[in-house]
């Protein structure tokens, strides 16, 4: 198990390097360091000297990938890529282009992101699974068909409409919760984004779980269990749910670490100061330092999710061995 983990972690390094290179390439094909300087310095009265100075201060005065003027290892290390990327492998994210500590920013923004994402995930999972179980319970009846139809309709609506409609009804018309924001006594700020998040996912997820349960329910052991006289509810909850765990886990565990990254849409619509809105702002402000930090963090968490998935298999199914 330990050996497996170590191997996976080592395997992650080339992936992270690849991710870094790709982000770097995509970003600097688009933006020259001069562009970034102008973006940061604003439009009024910007002189070429000011741009040169900015580049020098932020470390963008070096060549991008290969420094032909340096000697030896300096050819690779005295470059923007090396300076901006190498430190990230020890989780030192450095400073954003407007001079703020990125680690500090990530630390303070993680809370709000999680405050939305975690309840959405947990409540969502509970709702989807129960909804799917209900449909399975009443399979092939009008209720099931109505449920599936509802799912299809719900998943055919763009997420934007859920947010716009939710804000309009709940906050503007009914005055139930603040329309946006985040603050002390966070509960009332969190309710609406969480509900909208849950409803937004209900269509596709419930349908997916339903197919998993249906597949499971057609198996022989279920028939045997039923033949033994177990009630339908017992069969569903003890046998089917347990055996459906593996396919559910594959889809679910991998997203758990990514919850840290928050949701781009929800956060920017509701003005929640999380990592999702941080990412959007960084894209709009073309802040390379932040973008690559967020990409790095994202891929790190994704890989963590993959490893977690593998581990969770062994927990659910003792037959699976990690080697």
């Amino acid at each position: 198990m330990i050996a497996y983990l170590i191997r996976r972690l080592i395997y992650a390094i080339p992936i992270l390097i690849g991710v870094n290179l790709l982000t770097f390439a995509l970003f600097f094909v688009v933006n020259t360091p001069d562009d970034m300087a102008r973006m940061q310095l604003g439009i009024k009265r910007v002189t070429p000297e000011a741009i040169e100075k900015w580049k020098l201060q932020k470390g963008y005065d070096k060549p991008l990938l290969v420094n032909s003027r340096a000697a030896g290892a300096g050819q690779l290390t005295d470059t923007i890529f090396w300076h901006k990327s190498a430190s990230m492998f020890v989780l030192d994210f450095g400073y954003s282009d407007d001079g703020r500590s990125i680690s500090h920013e990530i630390a303070t923004r993680m809370g709000p992101s999680l405050a939305i994402a975690l309840p959405t995930f947990l409540i969502g999972l509970a709702c989807y699974v129960s909804f799917a179980l209900l449909m399975t319970l009443f399979r092939a009846t009008t209720l099931d068909i109505a449920g599936v139809a509802l799912c299809v309709v719900l998943m055919s609506i763009s997420g934007l409409f859920y947010i716009i409609g939710g804000q309009f009804l709940v906050s503007k018309l009914w005055h139930l919760v603040p329309i946006s924001g985040y603050g002390d006594g966070g509960f009332k700020f969190v309710v609406l984004p969480v509900i909208i998040g849950v409803i937004g996912g209900i269509g596709s997820s419930s349908r997916w779980y339903r197919t998993i349960f249906l597949e499971e329910i057609g198996r022989d052991y279920v028939r045997t269990a039923r033949a033994k006289g177990l009630s339908e509810l017992r069969v569903l909850f003890t046998h089917v749910l347990k055996n459906a765990m593996i396919p559910i886990l594959t889809g679910v565990v991998v997203v758990i670490p990514l919850l840290f990254m928050g949701s781009l849409l929800t956060e920017s619509f509701f003005g929640i100061p999380g990592l999702g809105s941080y990412t959007i702002d960084a894209i709009n402000a073309q802040d390379f330092s932040v973008v690559r930090a967020m990409v790095f963090l994202g891929s790190l968490l994704y890989i963590a999710g993959l490893i977690l998935t593998d581990i969770s298999y062994t927990m659910v199914d003792p037959r699976v061995r990690l080697s």
Binding site: I15, G18, V19, L22, T23, L26, F27, V29, V30, N31, M261, L264, T279, I283, V291, M294, V295, G298, S299, Y302, I303
Partner: peptide, 20 residues
């Protein structure tokens, strides 16, 4: 793995800017 581990919005945003 590299491609799917990058958050897709970021990847798309970068690529769209590049194409612009």
């Amino acid at each position: 793995t590299v491609l799917s581990s990058i958050p897709s919005v970021l990847l798309i945003a970068a690529a769209v800017l590049m194409m612009q």
